[in-house]
Design a protein around this nucleic acid. Structure first.
Length: 199
DNA sequence: GAAACGATTATCT
DNA sequence: GATAATCGTTTCA
């Protein structure tokens, strides 16, 4: 709990997806959606670095389509996609406008607004509140209408936290992707109990 | 615990 | 018509 959260500058996101994914760990995701502040510490991310990545929604084989258009937007904006027809997931667009790269936020450690989060995730244990990409969008009430929203300003933004020390930083292959999973483009804080899956 | 499986729909072929 | 960057329940052990 703290009095105020300071948004990260857009320049933080103007770098390669692997770099941003790694450095996002330890920062905060702050949501004022639906009228109450909920905050989580980012403990797990995945990089989708560009068209050369066959698992990306903007893979070269797919090209630039209506669905992945937000990935081509300015760094620091939101790309929110629906998965399996039921789950909404939040990405941060990175690198540079016109180039499709993003970082998927996969898990948070609840920090603030626990009562609200527990209500939104009714019946779940604390560990199940935000330990997955679609769980956290539900916990923070992130609506698909925030597509392309700048994540440097309310009602949803990334705020400065404490970097994760190198010895606590773990990386692995990405979860659930069916193509191009030989690269280790998933990053997580091994100290956290909210990581979605251990390697 | 771990593993199997069904839900449910936008998007692209 | 197939596919998908998941979740929650069920069914075992």
């Amino acid at each position: 709990m703290r009095a105020s959260y300071r948004p990260l500058p857009q320049s933080f996101f103007e770098r390669a997806a692997e770099t941003v994914a790694r450095e996002l760990l330890g920062h905060y995701l702050v949501s004022d959606c639906r009228g109450s502040r909920c905050v989580g510490r980012i403990v797990e991310t995945e990089a989708y670095p560009g068209p050369h990545d066959p698992a990306s929604h903007a893979a070269a084989s797919i090209g630039h389509t209506a669905r992945n258009d937000p990935m081509f937007g300015p760094p620091g904006t939101a790309y929110i996609h629906l998965n399996f027809g039921v789950h909404w997931c939040l990405n941060v667009v990175v690198r540079q406008e016109g180039y499709p790269a993003a970082v998927l936020i996969r898990a948070l450690e609840p920090v603030e607004g626990l009562d609200t989060i527990r209500r939104r995730r009714q019946g779940r244990s604390d560990r199940e509140l935000t330990s997955g990409p679609a769980k956290l969008t539900q916990a923070l009430a992130i609506p698909p209408s925030l597509q392309r929203h700048r994540l440097t300003e309310p009602p949803l933004f990334v705020a400065a936290g404490e970097p994760v020390p190198a010895r606590a930083l773990a990386r692995s292959t990405r979860v659930g992707v069916t193509k191009g999973n030989e690269r280790r483009w998933r990053f997580y804080d091994r100290r956290s109990a909210w990581v979605s899956r251990r390697s």
